[in-house]
Design a protein around this nucleic acid. Sequence first.
DNA 1: GTAAATATATAACATTTGTTATTATTTTAA
DNA 2: TTAAAATAATAACAAATGTTATATATTTAC
Lengths: 249, 249
Amino acid sequence: MLHINILFITFEFYSFMKNFFDQFDFQSNRLFGELNSAETRFVHKVMETLPIKKGGMLFYEEGIPTGVFQLKSGRAKKFKRGFSGEEQIFYIYTKEDVLGYHALLGEERYQDSCEALEDLEVNFISKSNFLKLLDDIPRLKQAVVKNISHEFGVLANTIAVLAQKDQNTRLAIFLLLLENKFNQFNGYSAGIDLTREDLSNFIGTSPESLGRSLKQFKDDGIIEIEKRIIYIKNREMLLQFLNLDLTML
Amino acid sequence: MLHINILFITFEFYSFMKNFFDQFDFQSNRLFGELNSAETRFVHKVMETLPIKKGGMLFYEEGIPTGVFQLKSGRAKKFKRGFSGEEQIFYIYTKEDVLGYHALLGEERYQDSCEALEDLEVNFISKSNFLKLLDDIPRLKQAVVKNISHEFGVLANTIAVLAQKDQNTRLAIFLLLLENKFNQFNGYSAGIDLTREDLSNFIGTSPESLGRSLKQFKDDGIIEIEKRIIYIKNREMLLQFLNLDLTML
DNA sequence: GTAAATATATAACATTTGTTATTATTTTAA
DNA sequence: TTAAAATAATAACAAATGTTATATATTTAC
């Protein structure tokens, strides 16, 4: 009886976590996944491999759209600059993610910038080829539109976190999200490897103030840091920041 | 010579302000505006007028999509609830705005909630009728997709403001935006009329702390308050919070 | 119109975050 | 490998924001 109960809790918990991660994930890695093998062949035909160095730009805010990218390996940050020029990161792309299609679906210019966080291998599809793919594969167009709609919800969720949560809570949330995102292809956790500046530009604080929160988490045994890589040691304590109604789990 | 210079400054200033307002405006009031008269007749044919009382819900987060709304009069807030249930407003719709189409373009459920801030007159288009319109008028579908893409940029800009700016700056920005949005159909300013709770749920603070910022603005002669309505008295001082490079204006 | 309920304004104190400065560590380039 | 440059960690103090409490004003319901 107890055993069954535990299984039930576990199932509820995993579905909560899945929902939590989905709410903050663009899921653009699924875009080409729903195609059949003939369509997939079409897509791969027009892809060209492109190496991009760490620090290189995939595209610039206000730049004229060139095409669509899929990351084969590496990570890239998407950000916007405010009036005063400060960088605000609002997403980090990883392996398999597709990006750059917003500007092709109506807007004339890129609305944000994308920069490689490390050396990237990228599959590139030129603007004309991608628009042709959308025309030839209605299911792909439908999937892209659906995904943009989903991404809208992700940004709305991000707004809620940034506007409502204090710094430690924001850090807890982003650590959970980043570890999930960075390690979904590994069987183990390789930790969270970001410069303090990037991490602080993501959670909305200064690097010094972020450092203080990290130290608190270290002192509480929630995380460990080696070099600059953050390892989560106590996931439960991070989840407590979410202020969940645990009776439902 | 001086005269020409002043004109130049004025032009630059207005184009800056226009750009500023556009960056934070969904512009969904333009959606039906680009249609020709025959298409417009089609659209109006399937619209039905719907009165909604203050506090009434146009739709709920997680609810099954019913259709699309256009406000004929009144204002409505769009919000999402965080894990702990706190309301985060991320947009306020006014006269002419069209809303509710995200959920129809792929997502199964509404991703956010929309509530009438006052008694509304609404034009409603049912889901099936709207989807038929999108099929019959490709230009409309194109415009909707383009607009969602634009809205994505608005949310990204909102994220940058909420993550990077302190409370007084956020208040200054939102006051400028709200006054522009609320009074774009009037020749004069009728001020900003929102409950303190709604305003604080928009700028990301508590009503008490918002009150303190409002008091500071009052003491500095930036605003005046009557009943709860906020009147901007010194627009220049609000603009200074934007930290602009004024040499370009 | 009046009482009750709700919303707003304000102040005082606690906590969090921003900022400046200094030291330690890591990375880069010669 | 080593020196220089860049990044990260930490501390101390200043400023901003959260929180609790109380008084005032406004709206609602009878």
